[in-house]
Design a binder for these strands. Sequence first.
DNA 1: CTCCAACCTGGAGCGCACTCCAGGTCAAGC
DNA 2: GCTTGACCTGGAGTGCGCTCCAGGTTGGAG
Lengths: 128, 128
Amino acid sequence: MSGYAPSEAARRSGFSLDTLRYYEKIGLLADVERTTGGQRVFTDDDLGWLVLFRCLRDTGMPIAQMRRYAQLARDGEHTADERHELLRHHATQVEEQMRLLQRQYDHLRDKIRFYEQLPATAPDPEAG
Amino acid sequence: MSGYAPSEAARRSGFSLDTLRYYEKIGLLADVERTTGGQRVFTDDDLGWLVLFRCLRDTGMPIAQMRRYAQLARDGEHTADERHELLRHHATQVEEQMRLLQRQYDHLRDKIRFYEQLPATAPDPEAG
DNA sequence: CTCCAACCTGGAGCGCACTCCAGGTCAAGC
DNA sequence: GCTTGACCTGGAGTGCGCTCCAGGTTGGAG
């Protein structure tokens, strides 16, 4: 229950093999265990981190910031406040992002409604 | 009420001057009017298009697709169905995007809640 | 008429986040 | 032991959406 081949880790995390290697290379994922032959072995812990990275990535956090978070976690328990703050700050960004998305979605629906109030009317304000 | 200098168009649309020029260059914005000296003059119609582009961009539509939409609109009234379909299709993408964002936001809030149920507990599943 | 800030062009460069490649190694199944 | 598919490395390349630049032109204020 705690030793996954690269392909298995990729399957479970939804990241490509190249992305997993990339994340390790840039120091986002901490050094991953290896077999004597040098092949990666991912642990449940690594998988947990990947789930988090997916969450942060999907909500638009830049990699540099994720890396900062990961580094803080590696630095130990005394960085908990800073990590907490980092996530809270990110959450407010996400809230703003959600509001914008909702607003523009509403706008889009208006536009679509326009097409549904055709047929055979005059072109709309932006001729589109 | 219908002739804006580039800087004014930029201010009103929220796009940079470079972006406005870029949008014209790639054929997203139709050829913009010019003074005899060659300087751009944006119309209310152009501004309307920019509002739409902002909506589509903010909701994640790739430029290629926006360009397709704009081209269809230029092609005339008989493309209305296709434009309608394009927007409807995009709207479903946006809905999915919103669901994902909400889901990952909830996940993020859980993570934050974890930090709030400290202090001085054991590290969480992904040690973060 | 002069000045200078705003504008023009074509094209190069950038930042992000991967993605692909060549050339070689590892390890499980037969 | 051999085969073969999964894996390794460093580094180059990609796609997107701008952004910046040099070198020149325009046009309204004074």
